[in-house]
Design a protein around this nucleic acid. Structure first.
Lengths: 263, 263
DNA sequence: ACACCATTTCCGGAATATGGAATTCTTTCT
DNA sequence: AGAAAGAATTCCATATTCCGGAAATGGTGT
C-alpha cells in the first residue's frame, strides 16, 4: 500500500488517484515527490496520461487535470450518484431533528468510510464534519453499521489495520464487544453510539446495493447531552427508512439512455 | 484512435474510458470484444484494475465499476463542477425565453463538444438534446462559438475530422464562410445560426477558464420559425452575460479544502 | 549574459507485458 | 444428475516495453 507500486499499470492508476486528490495544478518534480517515483518515470507516464487527455499542460511548466478526465468522471458520477440521491433524504433528517446528517461510502482501498455528503446541523455547537473525510470503522455508530455487513475476511483486515481511535487514541473495542454491536445492527437495522466523556453520540443505518452488498451508511451525529433516548428511537426509525429508500434507488441500475431522467 | 493501443499504460487508460461509458455490468469476453484486445491481456489488465479497486466483481462472472473509481470520479467532479455551476444560469435562461438552454464542453479527445448540462424548453415541439451527446463543431452556433477560440492547429484537425453534417449530411461550410463566422464570434462574443430548411436556430456564447483558454459554450437552441430577430438579440445578450459569469466562476480555481463551500 | 534549477531525452540492462494454447471453472441442456 | 458447451483463468516462451541514472536541453531569475 505505502510501497511504491511496480509496473506501468499500477503506477498509472496510483498517479490517477494522486491527480484526483492533489492540487489543481502541479509540476513534474513536485508530483514525482508525492508519487514517490523517479522523475524520468513520472515524466514518461505523465506523457502517456497527456496523450490520452487525462492531464493537460498549462502555461509553462504546470500540469493540471485534463478534460478527458473530467468527462469520464462526470459520466461515472451521473450514472451512479448516490450522494445526489441521498441529499434530499439528509435534508429531511436535518429538518426533522436539527442534527447533522451524513452519508458515508465504504472505500475498500483505504478500508474506511468516506463522507460522501453531509448536511450540517443549524446548532452552533456541533462536531465538524467535511465531505471527503475518512472515518475509521471500529468506533462510533457509522463504522459498525458498515462493518457488520462486510465479509468476515474483510472485517479481519479492517481490524488489523486500525489500532488507535480517532478521538483521543481510545483503544479499539474487543472482538466480543464488536460482535455484540454487529448482532444488534443485523437485528435492528441500525447502530447507535454514546460516549459521554466526549459528549458524542450517533446513530447509523446501512445502505446496500442491488446484490445486497454493503455500500455505506446514513447517519446522524450529535452531542450525547442533547440526545434523549426517545429521540434516539425516532432518529433510528427515520434513518432506517431513509437507508432502505436509498438502497432501493441504488438497486435500480440505470440504463445507458436514462441519464436525463435521474436529475 | 481506432488503432488498438499498445503498451499496458495506454491500454489501461483506454479500458477505463470504456468502463466509464459502457454498461453497468459486463463480462470478460464482451469487454475484450469492445476493447478490441486479446482475452488474456484484458483479463490481466482487469486484474490490475481490480487490485486498485477500479473495478469489482459481481456474482459469478460479471464485472462492474469499482468503488474506488466512484470515489475518484466524485472527487474530481466536486472540485470542478462546471455543469453544476451552470445549472442555475441555464434555468434562468429557460425561465426567461422558454427555449432549451445547454452547456457544452469541448472534448479534445473526440474533437467535439459534449453536452454537459441541459434544461429543456417547456414547449412540446422541440429538438431532442441529451446529456452526453456529442456535437460536431463546424455546424450550427454552438460549434463555431467554441471553434473560433481553439488554436489554429487544433481547428485544422477538427476540420480534417469532420465532413458530413449532423442533420442530413450537409457539406461542411468552407473555410472562408467559417472565418467570417469566427470573426463575428470574436467581435461580438456570441455565434448565431439559422437553418430555415430544418426550422433550426441557435445562439451560443463561449466560456473560458482562468487562463483564457476555451472550455466550451452556453447556448440556446430553438425552431427558427418561433425565433424573431429581436428575440435573438435579447438571447444573445443574456447568453453573453451568463457565459462571462460562468467563466468568472471557472477562473477561481478552488483550493483543496474548499470543497464544502462549493455546494 | 550567466548561472541555476526543472524538464526532457537517451540508452543498455532488466523486468514485464503479450497472446496462443492448455486448463479449470460455470452454466446450460438433456 | 451428468455431460457438453462456453467462458474464464492460468501457463509460458518470446519479445516488447519499461526502467531510471545520467546527460542534454530549456526556461527563469539575477
Amino acid at each position: 500500500m505505502t510501497a511504491p507500486p511496480s509496473g506501468s499499470g499500477e503506477r498509472l492508476l496510483h498517479m490517477i488517484q494522486l491527480i484526483a486528490s492533489g492540487p489543481d495544478t502541479f509540476t513534474l518534480g513536485e508530483f514525482a515527490e508525492r508519487a514517490q517515483l523517479p522523475l524520468s518515470s513520472v515524466h514518461r507516464l505523465l506523457k502517456t496520461l497527456e496523450r490520452a487527455g487525462f492531464v493537460e499542460r498549462g502555461s509553462g511548466l504546470s500540469y493540471r487535470r485534463g478534460r478527458e478526465l473530467h468527462r469520464i468522471a462526470s459520466q461515472i458520477v451521473s450514472r451512479f450518484d448516490l450522494a445526489r440521491s441521498a441529499l434530499p433524504l439528509l435534508q429531511d433528517l436535518v429538518d426533522r431533528f436539527h442534527e447533522t446528517a451524513l452519508l458515508c461510502v465504504y472505500s475498500p482501498v483505504s478500508r474506511r468510510a468516506v463522507v460522501a455528503e453531509v448536511v450540517i446541523t443549524p446548532h452552533p455547537l456541533r462536531f465538524n464534519v467535511e465531505k471527503g473525510q475518512e472515518i475509521a470503522l471500529p468506533w462510533g455508530s457509522m463504522g459498525p453499521a458498515v462493518l457488520a455487513f462486510l465479509p468476515k475476511s474483510e472485517i479481519e483486515m479492517v481490524l488489523r489495520t486500525e489500532h488507535a481511535g480517532p478521538l483521543t487514541g481510545m483503544p479499539r473495542p474487543t472482538r466480543d464487544e464488536l460482535e455484540v454491536e454487529f448482532e444488534h445492527v443485523r437485528q435492528h437495522g441500525f447502530a447507535s453510539y454514546r460516549e459521554p466523556k466526549f459528549d458524542a453520540a450517533g446513530v447509523a443505518a446501512p445502505v446496500f446495493n442491488g446484490e445486497n452488498e454493503i455500500l455505506g451508511c446514513l447517519g446522524v451525529i450529535t452531542l450525547s447531552s442533547r440526545f434523549s433516548l426517545t429521540m434516539e428511537q425516532e432518529v433510528a426509525a427515520a434513518l432506517r427508512a431513509a437507508a432502505e429508500d436509498l438502497s432501493q434507488q441504488a438497486a435500480v441500475s440505470p440504463s445507458p439512455g436514462a441519464m436525463l431522467s435521474r436529475n
